[in-house]
Simulated assay, not measured.
Amino acid sequence: MKWAELTWPEFERADKKVAVLPVGVVEAHGIHLPLGTDALMAIYVAERAAEGAGVLLLPPIWYGTTYVLDKFPGTISISAETLYRLYKEVFLEAARNGVKYLVVVNGHGGNIDALRMAAKEISKTTELTVIVINWWIDLAKEARRKVLQTLEGHAAEDETSEMMAAYPHLVKEMPRDADEWVETKYAVYGSAAYQQMYKKAVQGYPSKAAREKGEVILRAAVEELKSLLEYLKRDTLPIYKRQ
């Protein structure tokens, strides 16, 4: 059920126990993937899992924060402070509307700190349980190990394969020199360093991408997320005691 497509009487009658919120960013992803890749992939996984589990799907939050890729045209980066406040307000509204478990499907690394801070903050004043899933890290781990030939990255083999599977009409032809991998010995911050990093808005080897690889990853990711949602419907949290 898509939250935004319900009338208020329909929403009042709906089962609001579990809801899913996809979040991403608008930023450069090479010249072969669209600016909205991170949000689009979070939406894809969240929509299918929510539909399969029969739970509410909130409208996505497309915007996030990025600091290296804002040098590329089309990137939209909002401050971490604004992002934190936005997440916190949405979480509070979900709680006010009767959601017990909110699963955030995040598609962008730059959002992680703000999501964690907002989730921790609202836990002090509400009964809402927030579960943050960085989907490219937390889901389909085994599937990734089986099909990927190179390291995961940004607009790399993994992300390009996933977009080929989910949104093939948005994937452009790659140049022969699409690959890029840059490392720093330490954590380096500053405009001079940023100019030398991600010159192609790529971190990885998109030349190794294939639609079939993306299909394997996405099937596993959707199934794992769907399973979590079904557990939450039964009030079972993903908390395990190590033996």
Results as ranks from 00 to 15, higher is better:
L6Q: 04
T7D: 11
R13E: 15
D15V: 06
K17A: 11
G24W: 02
V25Q: 04
V25L: 14
I31V: 07
P34C: 08
P34H: 13
G36H: 09
G36T: 12
L40I: 06
V45S: 10
R48Y: 02
A49Y: 09
G52S: 13
A53M: 14
V55Q: 05
L58P: 08
P60E: 04
W62R: 10
T65I: 00
Y67C: 01
Y67M: 03
V68G: 05
V68N: 12
G74H: 02
A80E: 14
T82I: 08
L83H: 07
R85E: 14
L86Q: 04
L86C: 11
E89P: 11
A94L: 00
L102F: 03
N106S: 08
G107C: 01
D113E: 13
D113Y: 05
A118W: 03
K120D: 11
S123A: 15
K124L: 15
T126P: 09
I131G: 08
I133T: 13
W136P: 00
K141P: 03
A143I: 09
R145H: 10
Q149N: 14
S161W: 07
A165T: 12
A166Q: 00
P168G: 09
P168S: 09
L170I: 08
V171S: 05
Y186R: 15
A187E: 01
A187Q: 01
Y189T: 13
S191L: 12
A201I: 05
Q203R: 04
G204H: 01
K208G: 03
A209N: 06
R211L: 09
E224V: 04
E224H: 11
S227G: 12
Y231E: 15
T236G: 02
Y240D: 01
Y240C: 03
Y240G: 07
K241A: 13
Q243D: 15
